[in-house]
Design a protein around this nucleic acid. Structure first.
Lengths: 202, 202
DNA sequence: CATTAGTTGGACCCACCGGTCCAGTCAGGC
DNA sequence: GCCTGACTGGACCGGTGGGTCCAACTAATG
């Protein structure tokens, strides 16, 4: 655990965020700082050294961690056949729902939205909104290439993302057990892509 | 203000729920009971007379109020042409998002999900899930009549509901201003219905 | 080796909030 | 006119949790 001179221990910063996700998942926004500290094997004071306040910790958590979930989509969509590309994209859109961390992030941001609107807005921008935009770009390109006919790519992107994610996400946020296996994900992705292609065939 | 003998004042029960929605909207789950009481023009003790505890108040709020949002869908779908029927349904699915109360209900349930799973589950059952099931019935009937081809009506229903509601709901829950005008709602509803019909044409 | 700075654990302060209690009031039922 | 029972307002209690403080420790730097 190297510690650079005159600087805070960055590995502890990460450990704190990790612990925060865990504790927030269990106890919601009311999660006490003391337990986060305990879980991160760090003193409470250290948390305040790193983040200054609970609000700031939550802000950092949402901003830094959400980006990771949006990243995989950047690479996707290059595959030749639109059906395959859309299936891949659908799988990627669905994958965050398989990790409890994503759930915690969303819940935390939603719960804090009334008090700290900027955090929730930033998280939306970095996560769902970025995904939609990326998807819209893809749909626009396919339309230009004559393989699809999306007059309004952004709307089409929201439709597709909605098909794939929507009801499952709502249920998940409401605490229902989301028993989603790998084959199920694949089936949903393929079916959504299939239906979407029919809806927007040239 | 009629008050039946030997009974609590039911109009106050309602006033408390109304006030609770307001305060929860502003302050989230951390909203203090005292402010709910003040807003309802009722003493704190009265709230405890009516609901026993804060958790119980939240439970009552979610259960009683969510039903109202799911109700309008029961009537819909009778119209002849599927395109018209689907447009109507889409409008109804979208309409709760126009009221801040629905937002508050969802947020509160999601925030309490970690602590009181039954409440969130009940709310999901009474709201979104009931809508999906109702929609699936409609799609199944249309399929039987040969006007649609939905091999899996429940999945198709989730797809359609997702298209209409999804991304907007997520943004809304994250506190983004949802500037949705009546004509916009109509446009989205019509477009979603149109695309869905293409996707599931016989 | 002395300095500096982050870390630790634990005591501590204080505000807030859920929930209770109580004395007094007010409306119906008898 | 008296009893019953809900309602009021406000005091009150106790737990909890954000945030601070401090003395002792430790690891890089020079």
């Amino acid at each position: 655990m190297p510690r650079l001179a005159g600087q805070i221990d960055l590995s502890k910063s990460e450990a704190i965020l990790d612990a925060a996700v865990l504790v927030l998942a269990e106890r919601g926004v009311a999660a006490p700082m003391e337990e986060i500290a305990r879980r991160a094997r760090v003193s409470k004071q250290t948390i305040y050294n790193h983040y200054g306040s609970k609000a700031e910790l939550v802000r950092a958590l949402c901003e830094r961690r959400m980006v990771e979930f949006a990243a995989p989509l950047e690479a996707a969509g290059a595959a030749g056949h639109p059906a395959q590309a859309l299936t891949d994209i659908a799988r990627i859109l669905l994958s965050p729902l398989l990790t409890p961390q994503y759930l915690t992030l969303l819940r935390t941001a939603m719960a804090s939205a009334a008090v700290m609107p900027e955090v929730a807005a930033a998280l939306y921008e970095a996560g769902p909104r970025a995904s939609r935009r990326r998807l819209a770009d893809f749909l626009g390109a396919e339309t230009a290439a004559g393989r699809l006919a999306c007059p309004d790519p952004l709307e089409a992107a929201e439709f597709f993302a909605g098909m794939v994610v929507s009801s499952r996400q709502t249920a998940y946020l409401l605490g229902l057990p989301l028993a989603l296996t790998e084959p199920q994900v694949n089936a949903i992705a393929a079916e959504a892509a299939h239906r979407f292609l029919r809806a927007y065939a040239p």
